[in-house]
Write a protein that binds this DNA or RNA. Structure first.
Lengths: 154, 154
DNA sequence: TTATACTGACTTTCTTTGACCTTTGATTTT
DNA sequence: AAAATCAAAGGTCAAAGAAAGTCAGTATAA
């Protein structure tokens, strides 16, 4: 709907990151460019360019100061590999949900997708005779992760 | 039978949905336009634009907040009830995939979501001792369907 | 008289702003 | 040359603002 200044600034930075894996900018200049207070730049950085979303911020104060925004490449591969690893062990419902939540934080999946996946490893879904729920849960989650790793969606 | 404000608002939103599958609007603006309190918009949404009637609502608070109303492709209740019914019986991988594909056709889920869900009922995911795969598969799919029916996504 | 509609106070969430703080490189003093 | 000062960045945080959500009470239509 009505884009906020923060959204616009986010877009601008994203676009700047299209070509390169990092950009360096002046907080004051950027603020002036968007006619906002400098601290709004920090707000955008803190809410949108977080580590969870795959960015790292470096900066320097004082004369000649700057802000550098770096897009981590390979960010999610490590995470996914790690998550997949956890799935070699049986997982409780809570543990499984935790992994899924992290996927959302990292923007690998949407809230909606998360809820769908959670329902696939719910107690009800795994309602089966013997107590192999946890093993099954990790199995199922592992397949979802593999799918995400491959990323071969149409 | 006199039209209420709620009816008028409903009509307005319906008309807006004529062209597109979704609209985004500002609760405050709409309330102002119809000279009612903002919470009346919620009332209309809660009573008329329910999942049962084939709508999904998304929203965001705070500055730049909005309300998004999405029309699901025709009313899917019959379809979902039917699918859920199939899930009382064991399902082969092919049968499961078929149901999922239909969900995509009906725009209940995206291609991406479909692939994620397919991976949860894949042979690999259900790789467990005895041959209760098919029962498990229908169980899992049933939970996904129930989730979709409830539509209680954040 | 019951179900539906309306209202408004209060809550939660996200954004914007500004006052004050810290760091740093450059410049001036001693 | 070392110490002191200064100005130019960037950082923090809390308060104010802007939307939307909730819920319980009241009013009204059937």
């Amino acid at each position: 709907m009505n884009k906020t200044i923060s959204d616009t600034i986010e877009e601008f930075i994203m676009a700047s990151l299209d070509d390169d894996d990092f950009i360096e900018l002046s907080r004051n200049d950027l603020a002036k460019f968007f006619s906002c207070v400098p601290s709004q730049i920090n707000y955008v950085l803190n809410t949108r360019f977080t580590v969870n979303r795959g960015f790292v911020i470096e900066s320097q104060r004082g004369g000649g100061g700057y802000i550098k925004i770096v897009r981590m490449q390979d960010n999610n591969n490590n995470f996914l590999t790690n998550a997949l690893n956890m799935c070699t062990q049986p997982l409780s419902l809570t543990e499984g949900a935790q992994i899924i939540n992290h996927m959302v934080e990292r923007r690998l999946i949407s809230e909606r997708e998360a809820e769908l996946i959670k329902s696939t490893i719910s107690v009800k879904a795994l309602n089966n005779p013997i107590n192999i729920d946890n093993k099954l849960r990790s199995n199922i989650l592992a397949q979802v992760i593999i799918k995400l790793m491959k990323g071969d969606f149409k």
